[in-house]
């Protein structure tokens, strides 16, 4: 009887593969699967490298295009606020300032709103309403940016001028600090309203992904927190957010990145004056709006080069801002 069992011809396939690496074929898999693994791995790597190469190509072509402007103006290009296409003197300080101010201001407004919306949808919203409201918020992301621009110009700007700027202008003590901070032509086309429009634009992206992130928290972890007697606020603060922290940083980067590069929505409402903005309610310009406004018509090579140089600077700014953000967050973690 023992001999019969010993002579069983069957030997499980997986036994022979137990000691090998992840490249081993799974049991019952079609032959050549090891090749499939290699192909997949290198396809993924290839895609990532392709992405890098594409970005590299863009940056290099921008640098080459902007070289004449950099050569002509040198370092002064970064600090000068003159932008004169007739005398061909260009300086990037005004657009750079406008870009940084509008992006950070819009993030400041959009982040709490996006957090609030996503927390509401995940924790407090009645389940029936949750999906429709989520879809509604995502619908904001689908509205073409030119519509934001036009809405800003035709609806927000006049309202802002009439209901915010005029009352402040009329009631502020002349010469006082209130008047100084908020001075500017009361027609609603300024840095602040542009930031508001930007905030509404980046809000849906951030809220949608925050919501997805919150939904990946395992229910057991959240229920454990509730079981310990935490209020929903404490669950969010102490359990959910730390769990999805890394993803949240990514989302904030996404939002900030979007705000830095947005063109159409800002161009209509920022007032488009090239100097350094003097107050929150003063008109200004961003790099993206300047390029969008002037590139099509720029005929002289230096003008075109100055605009491309602005584009290159935007990449540099984004680079610096994102690097600094990462550095701060890495420190905060410790």
């Amino acid at each position: 009887m023992g001999a019969e069992t010993l002579s069983l011809p069957r030997r499980p396939l997986y036994e022979s593969n137990m000691a090998t690496t992840e490249l081993a074929s799974p049991r019952g898999a079609p032959p050549g699967h090891a090749l499939g693994e290699v192909i997949f791995r290198y396809a993924c790597l290839g895609a990532a490298t392709f992405l890098l190469a594409a970005l590299g190509g863009v940056v290099v072509s921008l640098f080459i295009g902007g070289l004449p402007a950099f050569r002509t103006f040198g370092f002064g290009f970064l600090t000068s606020t003159t932008w004169n296409p007739v005398t061909e003197v260009y300086g990037a300080a005004g657009p750079i300032a406008g870009t940084l101010i509008t992006s950070f201001l819009s993030l400041l407004v959009a982040l709490p709103l996006a957090l609030g919306v996503s927390v509401f949808l995940v924790e407090f919203c009645p389940p029936r309403l949750s999906r429709p409201i989520a879809i509604a918020v995502e619908l904001l992301a689908g509205i073409p940016s030119i519509v934001y621009g036009m809405w800003g110009l035709f609806v927000l700007a006049p309202w802002f001028a009439a209901h915010v700027q005029m009352p402040i202008a009329m009631n502020a003590a002349p010469g006082g600090w209130v008047e100084w901070i908020f001075r500017g032509t009361p027609n609603g086309a300024n840095i602040f309203t542009a930031s508001l429009i930007l905030a509404i634009m980046i809000l849906p992206y951030m809220a949608a992904v925050f919501r997805e992130l919150f939904l990946t928290v395992p229910p057991q972890v959240r229920e454990a927190a509730y079981g310990l007697g935490c209020t929903p606020f404490e669950v969010i603060k102490a359990v959910v957010i730390p769990y999805v922290r890394k993803g949240m940083i990514g989302v904030i980067m996404l939002g900030l990145g979007r705000a830095l590069g947005e063109t159409m929505a800002v161009t209509f409402i920022i007032g488009n004056s090239h100097g350094f903005p003097h107050s929150l309610f003063d008109s200004g310009s961003t790099i993206a709006s300047t390029v969008a406004n002037e590139f099509a018509e720029a005929t002289s090579d230096l003008h075109t080069s100055a605009l491309i140089a602005l584009g290159f600077l935007l990449f540099v700014i984004t680079f610096i801002v994102l690097a600094v953000a990462r550095l701060l967050l890495r420190e905060a973690k410790v």
């Binding site: 890098l52 190509g57 979007r258 590139f295 584009g311 984004t318 994102l322």
Partner: peptide, 25 residues
């Protein structure tokens, strides 16, 4: 890390500059 970082940078690229690059290409 490098790829992730540069990807974030690419997100903020103004669409008009991407258009110009593809024009050159």
């Amino acid at each position: 890390h490098v790829v992730r970082f540069f990807n974030d940078v690419l997100i903020s690229a103004p669409s008009i500059l991407i258009g110009l690059f593809v024009y050159e290409l």
